[in-house]
């Protein structure tokens, strides 16, 4: 069944001009980004699509490492929910990480990422699960009561409606007080993508606008 689905996934660069209109990228940047996509998507199977294994391999240089957050990032990139990324999904998602992308898109993306159960809010248990996962990834041990006090403190600050959950509005207010929470949402590399992958000019189909 999965194999059938991947057969239907579009491959290749597609229409770079249309993608440039849908994203903050220029046509040249879309073509340079496609060079990166080709590298990542050919790491395990050269089929023009990025699997979760290839995504993890690009992030951690190993397919062994399991990360709750790499999983969540992949799932949010995978808007067609087919378990694989085509170039359009990749470009649309990475556009949010561009330094020129609207801050509201970054705030929204990160909220969705942290909203593990996709209920429209973040509850204590989800937050604790993410803290525990982060500590485990980093090989750090913190006593449960210390973790609980970190969660308590966070909810005291963020949960201004005192209903035991952090909704999108509360998340937005928290981020505005702590802009560093968005630091992972901006990749300077995307601004220099045409110089990082200059080989795109050899494959360029169009003159940039």
């Amino acid at each position: 069944c999965d194999a059938d689905l991947s057969q239907q996934q579009p491959r290749g660069l597609g229409n770079p001009e249309a993608l440039a209109r849908e994203t903050v990228f220029s046509v040249s940047e879309i073509e340079a980004l496609y060079e990166l996509f080709k590298k990542i998507s050919s790491a395990v199977i050269d089929d023009g699509l990025i699997t979760k294994d290839e995504f993890q391999l690009a992030l951690f240089k190993t397919t062994k490492k399991e990360s709750l957050f790499a999983d969540r990032v992949f799932d949010l990139f995978d808007t067609k929910h087919k378990g694989i990324l085509d170039f359009k999904e990749f470009a649309l998602a990475l556009s949010i990480f561009h330094p020129n992308a609207p801050i509201n898109d970054k705030i929204e993306f990160l909220f969705q990422l942290y909203d593990l159960k996709q209920q429209g809010f973040i509850k204590r248990q989800e937050l604790k699960q993410m803290v525990v996962a982060t500590l485990a990834e980093a090989g750090m041990n913190l006593a449960d009561d210390v973790i609980e006090s970190i969660i308590d403190k966070t909810f005291e600050e963020a949960d201004t409606k005192h209903d035991g959950k952090i909704d999108k509005e509360e998340w937005r207010n928290l981020v505005l007080h702590h802009p560093s929470l968005l630091k992972n949402m901006t990749l300077q590399y995307l601004k220099d993508i045409t110089t990082t992958f200059p080989s795109f000019v050899f494959h360029s189909q169009v003159d940039d606008v």
Binding site: L59, F97, V131, L135, E137, A138, I151
Partner: peptide, 25 residues
Amino acid sequence: QPTSMNAFELISMSKGLNLENLFDT
């Protein structure tokens, strides 16, 4: 110090959230 951070600051340190590595091909 993780204990002085709020939970989201701590989570943002996760390597899984740092996509810079995608460009290190």
